[in-house]
Simulated assay, not measured.
Amino acid sequence: MKVCIFLDGLDEYKGDHELIANFFHETTKSAPNIKICVLSWPLLGFGGIVAGLPCLRFQDLSFQDIKFYVNENLSKHREFRQLLENEPIQATLLVKDIVNRANGVFLWVRLVVKSLREGLGNYDHLADLQDRLDELPRYLEQLYEHTLGLAHKIYKPHAYRIFQIVRAAKKQGTIIRHKEGEYGPLTTIALSFAAEETTSIYGNPLIRNLDPAYIKERCERIEGVLKTWCAGLLKVQTPYNTMHKHWKRRVQCLHRTARDYLESPQVVLL
């Protein structure tokens, strides 16, 4: 029998990275019929073990895709099309600069393009867009901190409250189990009520079904809040075949790295 194993996110392993990398390496050496393909962020613990083995760097393969993404999303904006017409060389160099800085990280590119599109909406010149790019951190955690710092100060207490609710919901999910599996995910309608500072069952003891239009309104509002108050660090996922069922949309972190950032010791959630 010949076996091929694919492992994604080996960097998320909580134990000794060098030990587990060495285990996989020794396994393939002792069993020629077993091949293992591992995907991971570059870590020092893997360096000496994988040296000389077949290897691909994702950023070398995704360059053209990222370039296409940046061009496609910026070119959709009327102001950038105007800049391309008036200053084609400088506008092209800006796109090239973004792609070169991305280092293969699509999420970083997505956040940067979002910032630049906001600048285009403010009628920024190319020099202003370049300044925006230059001030954005090169690493995701620093970029999250920077992005959250840009949120208006009056929104921050509300954002921290939502972050705490999302964290509590996740913790609850690891403790409470249903027969079918884990505790249900946090939905937009649940978050809309949980995030209300004035929510109380004492003033309105009447239990009734919620009007679908009312549910839709609440869900759309909380989705907008996540984009503004929470600086885009949380997102709404719509499960398959539930496009029009607003109450089934789930609230999640933008990315695993965003989750790790919000749960890290250096982030103080009030």
Results as ranks from 00 to 15, higher is better:
P32S: 11
R221M: 08
A190W: 03
A194E: 04
L226W: 01
I215Q: 00
G149Y: 03
E217F: 09
V251G: 05
S115C: 15
L126G: 10
E26D: 07
I175S: 12
D16I: 03
T147W: 06
G224M: 05
V38C: 00
Y202K: 10
E223M: 10
R117F: 13
R249I: 03
M1H: 04
K156I: 11
G121L: 12
V225R: 06
S40M: 07
A258F: 00
T92W: 00
L61A: 11
Q59L: 06
T28W: 03
V267A: 01
V268C: 00
L93Q: 12
T199E: 09
R256S: 10
D260Y: 00
I89E: 08
G52K: 05
V112F: 05
C55N: 12
E197I: 14
Y69H: 08
L148K: 04
S75G: 08
V225Y: 01
D60V: 11
G173H: 06
L150V: 12
S264E: 02
Q172W: 07
A51W: 03
T198C: 07
D124C: 15
T199G: 02
H178F: 15
H17Y: 00
V3K: 06
F58W: 01
Y144Q: 08
D11Q: 13
S30T: 13
K179M: 10
I175Q: 14
N73E: 15
I165S: 06
K67N: 07
A195E: 07
W229T: 04
L136D: 11
W41L: 13
L44S: 10
Y155Q: 03
Y144R: 04
I20R: 01
A195S: 15
S62M: 07
I154F: 09
E87W: 02
Q266L: 00
E135G: 09
Q82H: 08
K29A: 13
H25Y: 14
L39F: 04
L84H: 01
R110Y: 08
L7V: 12
D60G: 14
L56G: 06
E182R: 07
E85I: 00
K179C: 12
I20L: 07
A127P: 05
D260H: 01
A159M: 10
Y202D: 14
Q130C: 14
L270W: 00
P137H: 11
V99E: 02
I176F: 12
I201N: 06
Q90D: 03
Y123I: 14
P42R: 01
K67C: 00
E12C: 04
I162M: 03
